[in-house]
Structure formats: structure tokens, C-alpha cells
Design a protein around this nucleic acid. Structure first.
Lengths: 143, 143
DNA sequence: ACTTTTTACTACTGTTTTAATAGTTATCCA
DNA sequence: TGGATAACTATTAAAACAGTAGTAAAAAGT
């Protein structure tokens, strides 16, 4: 890992870690879609290419936003799960959804709502709900 | 403007608009640094290349996050200002700063604090303060 | 047991985007 | 009026991304 950071700015540093076209969509699939495997990430509507998906998963694991493991009952599938560091991105994702709903919809007529995920209710309640939901998924997955 | 959106997802759509390496840093310079001109953006520590800066400014203007104008007393400088749509990115930027402070600092030893900008006080108060501050700058600039 | 399918990739090629620097035009200032 | 300043554009090289094909290992079917 040679100097990945452009500066000491917290915002620039975050972009240097997850400011690419795909990382946040993988995290979205995990946290809002409950996705856990390479196959599942591959089938998202944005159609990420396998080479890019592979490199992003390695990178996200490298910076400890996700973990990679196999479950004892299945040696074929790799299971990717968010770490706490990754789960703490929920407030950021929430703000993106809110801003997008208000300011991007006019540009993208195909845009769907995320009201089914509980957005547009009380903000901090929504965030905590999504986070505890995901933590429950992790617990269930690891048994 | 041919199909810029990969999908109907609000998160993907936001990334399709401002999910590159530089747009959010230009917006950061405007909102937290009070920067308004091409020259000022050029002198940020991350050293954006003029060609990229030029194309990003055009793009941000195209999607109505910023405006470009000349002031009557100076026909040389172009003045770039955030629109309301752009000012509404402050909550998102705030969450990035908070996440970064907590989760990126360990990876980037050069990272500086933004406590001088009022972060780490009450969140919604900070956001409103930054926003009204910027609106005041706009007012002062346009006279 | 053996064949097929599934999963998780890697490899390859072409295209697009980004980076770094040099150069151009118009305005301002002394 | 001549030099400095501001806002770019142009150019070339490097890196990232996109799309598709192919491979190895595990699992599932027969």
C-alpha cells in the first residue's frame, strides 16, 4: 500500500479509499440488499465487470471495510460481510439517498424510491434500524 | 447529455453525477474554503490538473450544482458559486468528515482535524451554520 | 463414479478517463 | 504599453474501466 492519500483532508482521504465508481454500490448491495457473495454482487442492475468486482472486494478487504470467509458447510462460496467500520457508512449512505431523492430525480426519470427501506421516516431511527438489521444478518450468517 | 445513469438507484445516480475523484473536493473548497475562482481551486493541496478542473466545473454547471458568472468590476475572473442544490450537499459532506475522523485517521497519519469548521458540535447546528455562512458569502459576492 | 453445473474468479483486448505539463488568449495594472 | 495574471486549451502518456472469454475447484445431479 504505497501512498494512497492525496492530502491530509478527511474528505479527500475518504474519496481516496471509497471514492471510485463501484465501492459504495457494493456496500449498498450488502447493507440494503443483504448480498454476501460474488455472484450476488455480479447480478446487480449496474452490471459490474468481474475483474473490477474482484479488485474492489480485495481492496475493501484490505482497508478492513469488509471481511471474506468461507462457511464450513460450503467451501465453494466466499461470504463477504461488512465490518463495523463499513456498517458505520450507513449515515453517509442515508444522506446520499435523501439528497438524491430531492435533487437527482428530476434528471433521472427511471429513479426509484427507497421508501421501502424506511427512508423518509425519522432519520436517526432509520439509520439505527438499517444498522441493527445488518448486524442481525451477520449474526445469523455466522451462526 | 446521453444516458449518464447506470440504473434507477438513487445512490448509483448520485455517484454518476458527482462520484468522481474531484467534484466533491471542488465543492469542499467552495463551501469550507470560500473559494470562487479557477485559480483558487487550482491551488488546493491535492493539485487538480487544469484540464480536469475545467471539465469538472463545466459539468457541475451543466447539472446545476454551481453557477458561473463574471462580476461587473472584474472581467478577467470567473466567479463560481454553489446553487441551493449544491449547498444541500453539506449534510453529506458532514457525514463524510465524521466517518473519516473516526475510521480513516488510523490509515492516514497526515490527516488534519476539521474542528475549526465547527464539526463535532451538534450535527444539525453545524450543518445549518455552514450553509447560512455560505449563503452569506453568496450574498456578499453578488452585492 | 462420473458428468454437469455453479461459483469465483483470471486473462485479455479495446476504450475511456485521468495526469502532467506546455502553450494560448484576454484582461488588468503600473 | 509591457509585463503579470487568470482562465483556460492542447498534447501526450499513464492508468482505470468495460466486455467478453476462459479456467479451476467445489457441489449437485444421475
Amino acid at each position: 500500500m504505497k501512498n494512497i492519500f492525496r492530502s491530509g483532508c478527511p474528505i479527500a482521504s475518504t474519496l481516496d479509499l471509497i471514492g471510485d465508481k463501484w465501492s459504495l454500490l457494493i456496500i449498498r448491495d450488502m447493507i440494503l440488499g443483504g448480498k454476501k457473495t460474488f455472484k450476488e454482487f455480479s447480478t446487480s442492475p449496474e452490471k459490474i465487470a468481474p475483474g473490477i468486482l474482484s479488485s474492489r472486494l480485495k481492496w475493501l478487504e484490505c482497508i478492513a471495510l469488509i471481511t471474506k470467509r468461507k462457511l464450513p458447510e460450503n467451501q465453494k462460496e466466499n461470504i463477504y460481510l461488512l465490518t463495523e467500520k463499513g456498517i458505520e457508512l450507513v449515515p453517509l449512505i442515508t444522506e446520499i439517498v435523501l439528497w438524491s431523492d430531492k435533487n437527482v430525480r428530476a434528471l433521472n426519470s427511471e429513479m426509484y424510491s427507497m421508501s421501502d427501506k424506511g427512508f423518509h421516516a425519522d432519520k436517526s431511527a432509520v439509520i439505527e434500524h438499517i444498522q441493527s438489521n445488518y448486524r442481525e444478518l451477520v449474526r445469523k450468517t455466522l451462526g
